[in-house]
Write a protein that binds this DNA or RNA. Sequence first.
DNA 1: GCGTCCAGGTCTACC
DNA 2: GGTAGACCTGGACGC
Length: 301
Amino acid sequence: MRVLILPTPRHFNFWRTIYSHGWCSLPPFRVEKEHIRLRRLLTLPGGHVVAAIIRENEKGSLSIILPADKTIGKKDCDAIRASIRTCLRFDEEYSEFYTEARRHKEYRWIPKAGAGRLLRAPTVFEDVVKMICTTNCSWALTEIMVGNLCTKLGVQVNESLFTFPIPEAIAEKNESFLRKEIRSGYRAPYLLELSRRVAKGDVHLESWRSSSLPTEELFEEVRSVKGIGPYAAGNILKLLGRYDYLGIDSWCRKKFFEIHKNGRTSSDKVIERFYEPFGKWRGLFFWLDVTKHWYDKKFPF
DNA sequence: GCGTCCAGGTCTACC
DNA sequence: GGTAGACCTGGACGC
């Protein structure tokens, strides 16, 4: 066993970040509730796969626990640290967001709780594929699709651990396989087209995280991927660190009207007007608003 | 066990 | 620009 220590930024809350949305329950993430830790499979630049366990220490740091493996060198350790920092959003600046939250009595809980960081995958490709798998279906079906992608197209590490597939692994399959084996239904051609474009180098999803494009233009670029509409694009932008879009889905819509309108439903324009004053942070205020109740429990799901 | 209906976002064709 | 219908699956429900 080998342990890397990773210092955490100010206002960082480990469990709120892990449970910021549903990604922690989709492989290759896995919450190990009995040990109060997160497991994540990481594919290193040389192709080597490592099962990392991330645990919170008592004060201001995390432990990344790796298997005893002499082939994991210093460069690999740096890559592992970088991956975890990326997933947990260590390099993003939230002080402006917290200042905005403190201005509103009903949102002062946010900086106190250290909420706001949304868990993401090491790669944009994984985030985008997973987001397509959340569209127009139940969460149970999303879990089935992502589970199948990993077990049938990922790299097997042990009996129950599989990596998320690389674009090439999906690209070399056909639509019928994705429909029948992955159970992705009509999303199959979307996943196939995206994977083939990424594998061929026609589209560079990873550059979205450092894009200098104005958010509206980046939104349109994300929307240009087949299968990604306003909901999916809005939520992908949140994982890219841009919170200007709400990314409303049926669950959030229902929750908003329960919280703010006594359950009386209305149009999405009402929701958009409600969060307009929060400017470029409105998507994050919206998400934290509708999920605030999750944190009444240590393990919300 | 089987058939029917519904919910869930996005795309395409049409107005 | 707005709208209707198709896409596909799992789950709920009735028989």
